[in-house]
Design a binder for these strands. Structure first.
Length: 859
RNA sequence: GGGCAAGUGGUGGAAUGGCAUACACGCAGGACUUAAAAUCCUGUGGCCGUAAGGCUGUGUGGGUUCGACUCCCACCUUGCCCACCA
């Protein structure tokens, strides 16, 4: 029977059906067995699966099947991240119901995944848009609310005009909406936040436990949480009682501070400029900056703009009076929204000072330009050096001064104490903690997570606003707050739920008078922050997840997904896990032990995407070559973490290889019995056995150590080549139907290829295994083969001979040969002698089993 | 501006201190065929040479080493991430 396209489809469908019927991939908790949880980032159901999905899920599937064969109890679930904007956009554009559209996409996607033959436990499938799932979102939200981790606050938020909704900091990329790329602007709004910053220390500290995550993801998270050590310095406003707190990591430059800059949004600004001659002009400037888009404001190349307040501040270390400015380059979101400017040692301050002709003073000597004057500077010196013009700290290295000055400021009163009048201000200031110059402090970059979205297709936030009782949570017994259907979605006028009277108008759970339901929905990243826990007991209707099941299955042993989630999703998931630990629902700190970020799939050097129009439909490939060839091709073409350049001819190659394997079993596999001891083997037999064991070793190590599927597959190709060679050489000794020992060895090698290849191309391997008389219910139940060290031994090894590091010959020796013996052998060799040209031997290096290097005088 | 990753034949890639280019694609030649496809065999970094063989060769320049694709320093290029973060 030929391995035709028709035959491939029959085989693939046959085995997919068998897996389903025999429940091969249904996971059961079994404390007697060691578990293994392998998980892929679940897809957004946008329709058909694309090559990115195929790659992601094929990688994880190989791992899952490999672990199954190694005897682990494997949990490998799949589901759909089904809430989100595309469904709403489709509703606006095509006038279809988001729920209907989403379910259509899910069906299509599920079918695509099944066609690939992935080893999912479909009984655990979840969809985040089902009330059976999102009710637990609401439950979690209530638990967070109880503990003060979910709160409502009015503040300036990121607003995307394109999506007509708010965005989390993490969703703003270069000042633009991560989804639609619209400019993000700031708006004052009352919104729901999650207090992720309560965990900032743990989110940073526990990164140390993630030794099996890619370093760059850990670094990205580290930078995002952004802990910086520095000093809060208290500057008093001259002739007023106000204190301006500035944060700096460069306390060593405090004596070089020549002006103060406030962010335009700084709360003290209005107060400070009130009644001053330039008030109007200043307020106009602030308004102008406020109207600017975030990306423009945050662009580093932009000319820095500012305006003087006319007010002055007193430097606590020396009583120096310096001007207070307002400028767009200082951001309210970071630090205290106020900085001390040191133009000589900070490039931003330098540019600003040049622009507005503000004074500067050098306080760190640049060793490359000693004695340079302030007016001759062309850039700020940000490097290390010795302090000058810094009172008692002059002469100290700036690195040490950072610490020393911080300590000194924390322990001593400011210069203006006692100098200010009237006297009563002193007591007032001390009460505010300003009896010292500054305070060593830590600032974080991480902000609380804004989760309100003015969208329809998401989890309703389970809160009710009552005029009498304030914000009241929906009682647990009333969950879920079901998302109403048949809503008109126009894409305009804010949250569509606002217009749904039966949803909005409710009775207050506390006073039972009329009240209004919250109409914002949760950001969809909420849904995906805990779905891995839900899979542990996906059908449990009584609780968010089963503690016992989660204790058994969690944490996820291997997580596979795209690098694009390196910050958002992974950070949020880590936060939720820590929250569940505090709730007492889990007993571990981190959800994902090992993380693999697969590379992108490219076509003609560009990322494959719908908008570029360079996609290759996996379905078309399956139609022509089958799922196995597609899987093999995508695994063989590149290591999983690298970018993968799609090429049609590569599938052709995989298909040819599977064909060869098919015909190998069809034509060369002849049932035979018996066993051949090593002593009875000739050289060819030993070589075949060695090739077989080498392949077992290599494939096992390549899969488990670095997920080097491409080299694992190539070693199987090598074994196949060896089998062909062996068969051709042994032709005469192997008559058709022969019961010879050669046939036994050959069969063994063929069975090994099929077993080792089965995680990569499961359908064809199941079929061939069955043909060869395997009687297990599935090949994943066959134990993974082990290799024998003795069989790897060679009787003779080839040694490379070098003269002065250059390859000059080879020799075959016993592996046990001593250095003395080989030295004698090499030096006696006529060819080597020719290269030595009689020069005296200086050194002889022997790397056992590999190489000998004769070192003589050059020339 | 900062961080990370990468740079190897015509192509995808292999080798992490010891034979550079495994394995595959492509290409060329051959076998089979009336022919084509498929399949099988052989060859395939560059230069010189009929050959044996020699020289050269992993982005560039230096260094360490008996020996460097691999380690160190500097630079160039590309990709990704972050970015007026005080």
């Amino acid at each position: 029977m030929a391995y035709t396209t028709h035959e491939i489809h029959r085989i693939e469908e046959k085995w997919q059906e068998i897996w389903r019927q025999r429940k091969i991939f249904n996971a059961q908790m079994d404390s007697a067995k060691e578990k293994y949880y392998v998980l892929e980032m679940f897809p957004y159901p946008s329709g058909k699966i694309h090559m990115g999905h195929v790659r992601n899920y094929t990688i994880a599937d190989v791992i899952a099947r490999f672990k199954m064969m190694q005897g682990r109890n494997v949990l490998h679930p799949m589901g759909f991240d089904a809430f989100g904007q595309p469904a709403e956009n489709a509703a606006i554009k095509n006038k279809v119901d988001p729920a209907q559209w989403t379910h259509g996409c899910i069906d299509q996607m599920r079918q695509g995944l099944k066609r690939m033959g992935f080893s999912y436990d479909w009984d655990r499938e979840i969809s985040t848009c089902d009330a059976s799932y999102y009710r637990w979102n609401q439950w979690i939200f209530l638990k967070m609310f109880e503990r003060g981790l979910a709160y409502r606050k009015a503040s300036s938020v990121n607003w995307c005009g394109g999506c007509e909704t708010t965005l989390a900091n993490e969703e703003v990329i270069q000042g633009q909406c991560w989804r639609c790329k619209s400019e993000v602007v700031q708006r004052k709004l009352d919104q729901w936040y999650l207090r992720i910053t309560a965990y900032n220390e743990a989110l940073l500290e526990d990164l140390k436990k993630l030794s099996r995550w890619p370093q760059r993801v850990v670094t990205m998270q580290e930078n995002w949480v952004g802990k910086s050590h520095g000093v809060n310095i208290f500057f008093k406003v001259k002739d007023r009682e106000d204190i301006l707190t500035v944060f700096t990591t460069r306390a060593d430059t405090i004596f070089g501070a020549t002006y103060i800059v406030l962010a335009p949004e700084h709360p003290l600004v209005e107060e400070l400029v009130k009644g001053t001659p330039d008030e109007k002009e200043i307020m106009a400037f602030i308004q102008k900056v406020a109207n600017e888009s975030k990306s423009l404001r945050v662009c580093g190349d932009k000319k820095k703009e500012g305006i003087s307040t006319g007010r002055h501040a007193v430097n606590p270390v020396n009583g120096e009076v310096i001007p207070i400015w307002i400028a767009d380059y200082v951001l309210m979101e970071y630090g205290t929204g106020a900085i001390m400017a040191v133009p000589t040692h900070d490039q931003r301050d330098f540019l600003f000072a040049k622009e507005y002709q503000l004074p500067m003073r050098i306080v760190i000597q640049n060793p490359a330009e000693p004695g340079i004057k302030e007016q001759d500077l062309t850039y700020a010196y940000e490097g290390d050096g010795v302090l000058v013009h810094s009172a008692q700290f002059s002469g100290l290295s700036n690195v040490r001064a950072v610490e020393k000055i911080g300590e000194w400021m924390s322990a001593n009163p400011p210069a203006w104490i006692g100098e200010t009048s009237p006297d009563k201000s002193q007591g007032d200031l001390s009460r505010r903690g300003c009896h010292v110059m500054g305070k060593v402090s830590v600032h974080w970059r991480l902000r609380d997570w804004l989760i309100s979205r003015q969208r329809y297709w998401g989890t309703p936030i389970p809160m009710i606003a009552c005029d009498r009782c304030g914000i009241v949570p929906v009682p647990e017994k009333d969950l879920p707050v079901v998302l109403p259907e048949n809503i008109k979605i126009t894409g305009q006028g804010g949250s569509p739920l606002n217009y749904c009277a039966e949803f909005v108008n409710v009775l207050c759970p506390r006073c039972h008078k009329s009240a209004r339901r919250e109409t914002d929905t949760m950001a969809t990243f909420f849904d995906s922050s805990w779905y891995y826990l839900r899979y542990c007991s996906a059908c449990d209707e009584r609780q968010v997840f089963d503690k016992k099941e989660a204790a058994y299955w969690m944490p996820v042993d291997q997580y596979v997904g795209g690098i694009e989630h390196a910050i958002l999703h992974l950070l949020y998931s880590r936060f939720f896990t820590k929250f569940f630990k505090d709730l007492g629902w889990v007993n571990f700190d981190e959800p994902f032990i090992r993380l693999l970020t697969q590379g992108m799939v490219l076509k003609d050097g560009e990322v494959m995407s719908k908008s570029r129009g360079n996609t290759v439909d996996p379905d078309d490939v399956i139609e022509r070559y089958g799922a196995d060839a597609l899987r093999l091709c995508i695994l063989f073409a590149a290591p999983p973490e690298d970018q993968l350049e799609w090429s049609d001819s590569a599938v052709d190659g995989s298909w040819k290889f599977l064909n060869r394997l098919w015909h190998l079993v069809e034509n060369r596999y002849v049932p035979a019995s018996g066993n051949m001891g090593r002593e009875a083997m000739d050289q060819a037999d030993k070589d075949l056995e060695r090739a077989r064991h080498t392949a077992i070793k290599k494939v096992t190590e390549d899969i488990s150590e670095g997920y080097k599927f491409n080299t694992a597959i190539s070693s199987l190709m090598i074994l196949m080549n060896e089998i062909d060679r062996y068969h051709n050489a042994a032709g005469n000794a192997m008559p058709t139907g022969g019961q010879t020992m050669k046939q036994v060895l050959l069969n063994k090698a063929i069975r090994t290829v099929v077993l080792l290849l089965s995680p990569f191309t499961p359908h064809i391997c199941e079929e061939l295994w069955e043909k060869m008389g395997g009687c297990e219910e599935s090949i994943v139940r066959v134990p993974w083969p082990a290799y024998d060290k003795d069989a790897l031994q060679q009787d003779l090894v080839q040694i490379v001979v070098q003269v002065n590091g250059k390859l000059r010959g080879r020799c075959e020796v016993r592996p046990q040969i001593t250095e003395e013996e080989i030295k004698e052998l090499v030096l006696a060799d006529a060819k080597i002698q020719g290269f030595l040209q009689g020069r005296p031997l200086r050194r002889f290096i022997y790397v056992p089993g590999k190489l000998a290097n004769v070192v003589v005088e050059e020339g």
